[in-house]
Simulated assay, not measured.
Amino acid sequence: MHSQAQVSPANVPRDELKPNKIIPASEVRDICGGISDMSLWRWLQDPELKFPRPLYIARRRYWREEDVIAWLESRPQQLEAAE
């Protein structure tokens, strides 16, 4: 079982990020503010958001952690407006 602690781009030091670390959808949802799987699916379907595309391994979705953090950092005002 994984921790429910929420991680945000602001509290993930850049030097702790591993460039090729892949994370599952559950961690992506946590990093993105505890969003639901349906919200993640909607973000993936919306071409205007340009959310990073997942990698599929054994039919499961994974993302490069660095890509998700970079995407979040590029969109602070849009995400705050949606809350």
Rank of each mutant, 00 (worst) to 15 (best):
I22N: 07
I22Q: 09
P24V: 01
E27P: 04
E27R: 10
V28S: 02
R29E: 13
C32G: 01
G33P: 04
G33S: 12
G34C: 09
M38P: 04
S39N: 13
L40F: 03
W41G: 12
R42P: 01
W43S: 02
W43H: 10
W43F: 08
L44S: 03
Q45N: 11
D46N: 12
D46S: 07
D46A: 05
D46Y: 07
P47V: 01
P47T: 03
E48A: 11
K50W: 11
K50P: 00
F51S: 00
F51R: 00
P52D: 02
P52G: 08
R53M: 03
R53Y: 02
R53V: 04
P54H: 05
P54M: 04
A58Q: 15
A58C: 01
A58E: 07
R59W: 00
R61W: 00
R61V: 00
R61M: 03
R64A: 06
E65I: 02
E66M: 10
D67Q: 14
V68K: 00
I69H: 03
I69C: 11
I69G: 11
A70Y: 07
A70R: 11
A70Q: 09
W71A: 00
S74L: 09
R75C: 06
P76S: 13
P76Q: 10
Q78W: 10
Q78R: 15
A81L: 14
A81V: 08
A81G: 12
A82P: 13
